[in-house]
Design a protein around this nucleic acid. Sequence first.
DNA 1: TATTGTTATACTCTATAACTATA
DNA 2: TATAGTTATAGAGTATAACAATA
Lengths: 174, 174
Amino acid sequence: MAAQAQYEELARQLSAIGAVKRHIGRTLPPACPSGTAAVLTLLGRHGDMRMGKLAELLAVDMSVTSRHVAHAADRGWIERSPDPADKRSRILRLTASGQDQLDELSRLTVELLAERLSDWSDDDVGRLTQLMARIRESFDCRPAPRLAPTTIATATAFAVAAPAVADETTRTPA
Amino acid sequence: MAAQAQYEELARQLSAIGAVKRHIGRTLPPACPSGTAAVLTLLGRHGDMRMGKLAELLAVDMSVTSRHVAHAADRGWIERSPDPADKRSRILRLTASGQDQLDELSRLTVELLAERLSDWSDDDVGRLTQLMARIRESFDCRPAPRLAPTTIATATAFAVAAPAVADETTRTPA
DNA sequence: TATTGTTATACTCTATAACTATA
DNA sequence: TATAGTTATAGAGTATAACAATA
C-alpha cells in the first residue's frame, strides 16, 4: 500500500501521459486517426472477431467501436460479414488493404518510438509496457456490459465479488 | 534498442492507457472535469505561475489552457491577477476555495487508486510513475512555442541541436 | 424479454487561426 | 515586429439513449 503522495504523483502522470499518445497520433496518416488505428491493430493481433469482442478489447462503448469500424470499413480496410450463428452479429475481418494499412501504421510507430526511445534499455521499454498493461487490468478496463434493468442487481453483486471475469475466450454467441 | 514487437506492444499500451484516465475522471465531481483538475493540481504543486508556464506543464496549447483556466476561474477556484512586470501577462493563483476543491480531488483520486492498486507494491507504483514521466521527457511533451515566421528557421535548427531546453525556472518575463 | 449492433445527440479535450493588447 | 493571452471554429474521442433486428 503506497503513500498518498505516491498515488497523487501516479494520478498526475496518468493525466499527462496522453501527450505521448497525441504525439504518436500526429505521425499517423490523416485518413487513419488513432481510434481507427487501434481497431486495425487489435484485428491484426487477435484475428477475426465480433463487434462486442472488439469493444471489450478497446475498452470503449460499442457505439464508439461501431463508429471506428464504420470508418475503417468505408475505406475498405475491414469487412463486416454476417455471423451465420447469430444474425444480429457481424464478423469483422481485416482485408488485404487493411493489412497493408496496418503494416504502414506499424512501421511509422516503430520508427518514431525507436527514434525517441533510443536511449532506453530493452528492459525499461518492457517494464513500462508491462506496468501499463497491469494497471489496466487493475482497473478492469472493459466497458461495463449494458444490462437490462431486471438483471442489474444480480450482475452488480457478482461484479463486486469477482470483478475480473476474463471469460471472453470461452463465451459462445447466444 | 528494443525489438520491433516490443515497440508495437508499447504503442498498443499507450493507446489503451486512456481507459484508466477515463475511469479516474468518472469519479471526479461533475463541475471539475479532468482538464480543470489538472490545472488545479499543477497550481497547487508548483505555486503561482503565468498562463504560458502552465500551458507548458500541461503540454497542451495555450488556447486549451486558457479554456480550462477560465472554467476554474468562473467557479472561483483560480484568481487571475495582472502581472505588474508585463501587462500582457496574468498571474494565476489558487484561491482558498480552489485549494478546498483540490483537496477533495486528491482525496477522491487517492481513495480510488488505493482501492484498485491494493495489491501493488510501493516499488511498482513508483516504477510506473517514474517510467511514465520518463517517456514524456523522451517525447519532450511540451507544446512547440508559437514562433513568428521569420524566427522559425533559427528556432528549428536550435531545437534539433538541443531539444530539451528546460530553462523554465530561470526565464524572466520579457 | 434480452441482446447485438447502429445512429443521434451531447460533452470533453485538443489544435489552428484570427484577434487584442502589450512589449 | 514579436509575444501573452483570448476567442471562434473545427475535429477526434467518448458516453447515453433510442432504435431495429434477432435471439
